[in-house]
Nucleic acid binder design. Structure first.
Lengths: 152, 152
DNA sequence: AGGATGCTTTACGTTTACGTCAACGTCAAG
DNA sequence: CTTGACGTTGACGTAAACGTAAAGCATCCT
């Protein structure tokens, strides 16, 4: 029950412990993120993460954990993995040239449109749900005040 | 380009034209909702919609359009079709018994939790996107004020 | 009459996102 | 040294959500 939530902030500002060198095994990340080894490797196959290799074994750094957080949130939001990859790749690109930066800004614009529609969809769904609940509850109250209610 | 948006309100209050009897063919609904025949029939196979049958041909009523709106929004939010089915089925159940109503209210509770987390996820993603855009733009301004900028 | 169109069913193909073995390497503990 | 525990690479399986013919009716148009 005491699950250490792997909520990394995207930027590390903790200079007290220069803990940016911590590493994790595949079992540890799979466990903390509540996914399987297979899933972790699958994300690697799709180039969503790229852990270090010590010989043949995979070593996961903070960077991979940050990416996994973004991946899983993207999944919760229903994005396909390929799309998620392009998004999180966007987040840590060199951004050297101005043309490149403008391209990135374009992408950001598209992403925002996408996310804003999702937000509207969520809001609408929640509002409908609320209204429906009100109707159900008023109906339930009516039933409670009528005969034949055996408090089933 | 002049696409009639099939934005039905869930409840019909338009008593001027008792247009609740309009019907559509599969081609019409597929076209208006920008999906294929196959998709429409697929939703029928999964009991997400159940159009009338005139002989062998399918006739779609307002009810099907309402459901299609809910289905497509559910898809945009990343819900699997089976889950969508249980949700929209919930919305038009008999709700006869009190026990049934309580069950429905329970389901509503679960759904709301789910949707609220999605909302948080969307908000977080939007906030990160905004911050990232600000960084990109400030970076772009720096580039514009330095030599070597050939306005690529 | 004879296409051309539109709708139908049947059925196999495809993509995504993993699940599930199988078979093998490796390293510390008994 | 061998037994686990943990890791690795294939490679095939699967469920969801359609795509994509293929082949058959029905009707409408000229």
């Amino acid at each position: 029950m005491t699950r250490t939530d792997p909520a990394d902030s995207t930027r590390a500002g903790d200079s007290g412990t220069p803990s940016d060198s911590r590493t994790w095994t595949i079992a540890q990340v799979a466990d903390e993120f509540a996914i399987t080894h297979r899933t972790v490797r699958h994300y690697e196959e799709l180039n969503l993460i790229s852990p270090e290799r010590r010989g043949t074994v995979r070593i996961y750094h903070r960077r991979e954990r940050t990416r996994l957080n973004l991946i899983l949130r993207g999944k919760r939001l229903g994005f396909p993995l390929e799309e998620i990859r392009t998004i999180i790749d966007l987040y840590d690109e060199p951004t050297g040239q101005a043309s490149q930066l403008r391209y990135v800004l374009d992408q950001i614009h598209d992403r925002r449109g996408n996310l804003e529609r999702r937000r509207r969809d969520v809001e609408d769904a929640l509002n409908e749900l609320d209204e429906f609940e009100r109707r159900c509850q008023s109906h339930l109250r009516q039933l409670a005040q009528q005969p034949g209610s055996l408090s089933t």
